[in-house]
Design a binder for these strands. Structure first.
Length: 380
DNA sequence: TCTGGGGTCCTAGGACCC
DNA sequence: TCTGGGGTCCTAGGACCC
């Protein structure tokens, strides 16, 4: 008997090692090597007189940068995104280190999204390197092909992959399932350059054996708490009593955990949302003290406020709530914000409001990070 | 060898108003 | 003068995601 086709077909597309792959297009001689993207401007490749390029390596890296992306060759050494570059250097000193070039990645991001839109226009942006796509109403999505009951939707996803490859030279991985939650999980199942179609029938064999962290929305804290309660896998979570989950995680999150483990998710693919906030922040090379480093701190503060103002104006927004963020040497983070009578978008007003916020913070400890934020945005 | 920068959403308490 | 319930706004912190 043929399986019942799902009500919706949602795809999650994830570009493979995106930043690193964009860099490999620019520097093809690094193909196959361990390459790590992250850190500041300093380690830009230099062109030698003989025309070859010289790259920095991780060896001897000193600073506070983290890995934003690593090639699969670098991941083989245990390097992964979010890891401090100092630690990465200890694991793979010979790996090439390249600075992040967001301009370049944003340009490539626009290109791959346009390529997807040619095939399937219903797209939800999930950042620079991933999207959800609603395939439900595309021609052929519900058709079988030969003995493959889901051949139609599989062919559509393959078309998308081919189009992305043609437009960018980059590979991506796609998961196609009845909802966003499962699609996100499925896109990781055959990475890189993979295509995975799953239905609810595949839940017990393909999804339940996986760790709870694979669910988008279960982070380090929730996973640790689940582990302490004896739940490691999604299957174990699925077997837990909803009432028991609510007791331990609260009504809202407890219920959601139960639904997620059953692979249930009704969220629609949302094509466009207005921004909620815009912010700029910076971590200092060395911790600064409010009194001893007053001038330097003030200059950075003004620069951040100016950057937020520029971002707001460029995109045509003003913010009614101005906030600051400080992180101290012990990594404790505090925020303060202030809602103004009128939305503002100019650097002076933002700097002034941010200054009022700063007065409400106890500045005994040295500071490692300072940030300025505009929220409650209104379109101008 | 301490842990970036840009976001979203949720919770919870207090102020304030009806 | 006391009690109280509901709604909204503001603020602070925290979890999580890319």
């Amino acid at each position: 008997m043929n399986p019942v086709p799902p009500r919706r077909w949602i795809a999650h597309l994830d570009m493979d090692a995106f930043y690193a792959s964009v860099e490999l297009l620019r520097y093809p001689e690094l193909q196959g090597q361990a390459v790590v993207i992250g850190g500041g401007r300093r380690h830009q490749p230099t062109l030698l007189p003989d025309g070859t390029r010289q790259f920095s390596t991780l060896a001897g890296y000193a600073g506070r940068g983290v890995v934003t992306t690593a090639t699969y060759a670098a991941r083989d050494f245990g390097v992964h995104s979010g890891m401090g570059l100092m630690k990465a250097a200890a694991l793979a000193p010979q790996a090439v280190l390249l600075p992040t070039d967001f301009e370049q990645y944003r340009a490539m991001s626009r290109r791959f999204k346009a390529a997807v839109a040619e095939v399937a226009p219903l797209i939800e942006d999930r950042g620079i390197d991933e999207i959800y796509i609603d395939l439900t109403h595309l021609p052929g999505a519900q058709e079988a092909v030969g003995h493959d009951p889901f051949g139609g939707v599989r062919a559509l996803a393959q078309d998308i992959r081919n189009n992305v490859r043609r437009a960018t030279g980059l590979t991506c991985s796609i998961g196609v399932t009845p909802n966003k939650l499962l699609a996100k999980i499925a896109s990781e199942l055959d990475k890189p350059d993979g295509l995975t179609v799953l239905t609810h029938d595949d839940l017990p064999t393909r999804v339940w054996p996986m760790g709870v962290r694979r669910i988008n929305g279960i982070g380090p804290k929730a996973a640790a708490k689940l582990a302490a309660l004896g739940l490691q896998t999604i299957g174990q979570l699925a077997a837990a009593e909803p009432r028991w989950l609510v007791e331990h995680f609260g009504r809202s999150y407890g219920r959601w955990l139960h639904e997620a483990a059953q692979g249930r998710d009704d969220r629609p693919v949302e094509t466009r949302g207005e921004p909620v906030s815009m912010s700029r922040e910076t971590t200092f090379e060395n911790d600064l003290h409010a009194v001893r480093d007053r001038d330097e701190l003030g200059a950075i503060f003004t620069r951040l406020a100016t950057q937020v103002a520029t971002d707001l104006q460029r995109k045509g927004y003003a913010g009614r709530t101005i906030g600051i963020k400080l992180r101290f040497e012990d990594f404790k983070t505090v925020t303060r914000d202030l809602t103004l009578p009128q939305p503002v978008a100019d650097a002076g007003a933002i700097r002034h409001a941010a200054g009022l916020c700063l007065k409400r913070v106890d500045l005994q400890r040295r500071i490692r990070l300072l940030g300025v934020r505009a929220g409650s945005l209104v379109k101008l």
